[in-house]
């Protein structure tokens, strides 16, 4: 784990535990996970279904609470924040890209992109806005509504929305899960270039080795714990790592049903 870095981490988990249910039905989704996500890096979280990768991201983003441990976004401690504090955090420090249903159907692409800024009453930096729009390549589609855009285009609008507010960290939850391979490539390229060209920090949950290969670093989760990690991954190295992890996985977690 690279907790000792020259720069302070954009997001950090400090021994976090997450337990669902009681008694016999108790499931430990996270078992004391500690990790940090460095600024200006693209990190992928991987793991089989039920490994706790989505739960980890939800806890990091303040969408879910932890039962023990601490979560930090930048220098803000997320653990213990109330609704108002979490809302402020989401407005100022966090961006989201979801697998699907990312846009408001009533707003145009441009209005969707500017929505987080509008909600928090901020104006985007026009130069930065133009740059983001140019990079996502949606210039001629800005006045369209989501229903008039393809899945890939919708997801690029969602990326632009996350990026335009320049959050501390963007959390992407299976952003390419619903896309064909060409659209996936476009979205992932865009995410990577926003990290490398603009210094954005991105944390992405995925189960697709190809998607993970776009990241700078991959964390592997199994049974609620970080079991391994990989710097500068390729599709092949990720696949190998996953295969090597598979036998070590407990049968309970493998058949654990929902991806919590």
């Amino acid at each position: 784990m690279s907790s000792e870095t020259t720069q302070p981490a954009a997001a950090r988990a400090d021994g976090i535990w997450k337990v669902y249910g009681h008694g016999e039905a108790q499931v430990h989704a996270l078992r004391g996970v500690s990790t940090a996500f460095d600024r200006g890096r693209f990190t992928a979280i991987m793991g089989p279904s039920g490994s706790g990768k989505s739960t980890l991201m939800h806890c990091l983003a303040g969408l879910d609470t932890v039962d023990a441990g601490h979560v930090f976004i930048g220098d803000t401690q997320v653990t213990g924040l109330g609704d108002a504090g979490l809302t402020k955090l989401r407005r100022e420090k966090v961006g989201f890209i979801f697998q699907q249903f990312n846009l408001l159907p009533t707003l145009t692409a441009e209005e969707n992109i500017l929505l987080p800024m509008a909600i928090s009453g901020r104006k985007p930096d026009p130069q930065w806005y133009d740059l983001v729009i140019k990079t996502v390549g949606l210039g001629d589609r800005l006045s369209h509504r989501p229903t008039e855009l393809s899945g890939g285009q919708q997801q690029r609008v969602a990326c632009a929305r996350a990026l335009v507010a320049r959050p501390e960290v963007i959390f992407a939850d299976e952003p390419t899960g619903n896309l064909d391979s060409r659209s996936s490539g476009e979205v992932l390229n865009f995410l990577r270039s926003s990290v490398h060209d603009f210094g954005q920090t991105i944390v992405m949950v995925t189960h697709d080795p190809r998607a993970a290969s776009y990241a700078d670093r991959v964390i592997f989760l199994a049974d609620g714990s970080i079991v391994d990690e990989l710097e500068k991954p390729t599709e092949g190295s990720v696949l190998d790592k996953m295969k090597s992890l598979d036998p070590g996985q407990s049968p309970d977690a493998a058949t654990g049903g929902a991806d919590v």
Partner: peptide
Amino acid sequence: TRELGLLRAIGLGRAA
């Protein structure tokens, strides 16, 4: 519901 979830996730407060 999902739309409301999204709005809340990107920073819309309860009062809003």
